[in-house]
Computed example of a mutant assay.
Amino acid sequence: MKRILLAVIALALSFGAKAQIESHVKWSYAAKRISPTEAVVFLKATIDDKWHIYGLDVKDGGPIKTSFTFAPSKEYSLVGKPIQPTPIKKYESTFKMDVTYFEKSVVFQQKIKLKSANAATVKGQLEYMTCNDQKCLPPEDVDFTIPLGK
Rank of each mutant, 00 (worst) to 15 (best):
K74M: 06
P85E: 07
A12M: 09
K44L: 07
E92I: 09
V40A: 03
S73K: 10
K26S: 04
I47R: 08
K104C: 01
Q20E: 12
D98W: 09
K81P: 04
T69V: 12
A39Q: 10
A7L: 15
E75G: 14
P36W: 04
E92V: 08
A12T: 09
T66P: 12
F95R: 03
K81R: 10
L78F: 08
K96R: 11
V99H: 05
A30M: 11
L11Q: 11
G16V: 02
A17W: 05
I21V: 14
W27Q: 05
I64V: 15
F68C: 02
T46V: 15
S14P: 12
V79H: 12
H52Y: 07
G61C: 02
A31E: 13
L5T: 00
S23M: 09
K32L: 12
P72Q: 08
L11A: 15
S23T: 13
L56I: 06
D98V: 15
P36Q: 11
G61F: 04
V99W: 01
I34G: 05
Q20K: 13
E92M: 08
D60Q: 13
F68K: 02
H52Q: 03
I34C: 08
K65V: 00
K104D: 14
A31D: 13
F70Q: 02
Y101I: 00
V8N: 09
G55W: 10
E103P: 04
I83T: 15
V41P: 08
K50I: 00
K59Q: 14
P72W: 05
I21D: 07
S14R: 11
I64E: 11
V58M: 01
K50F: 11
I4E: 07
G55L: 02
H24K: 12
I4G: 03
P72L: 10
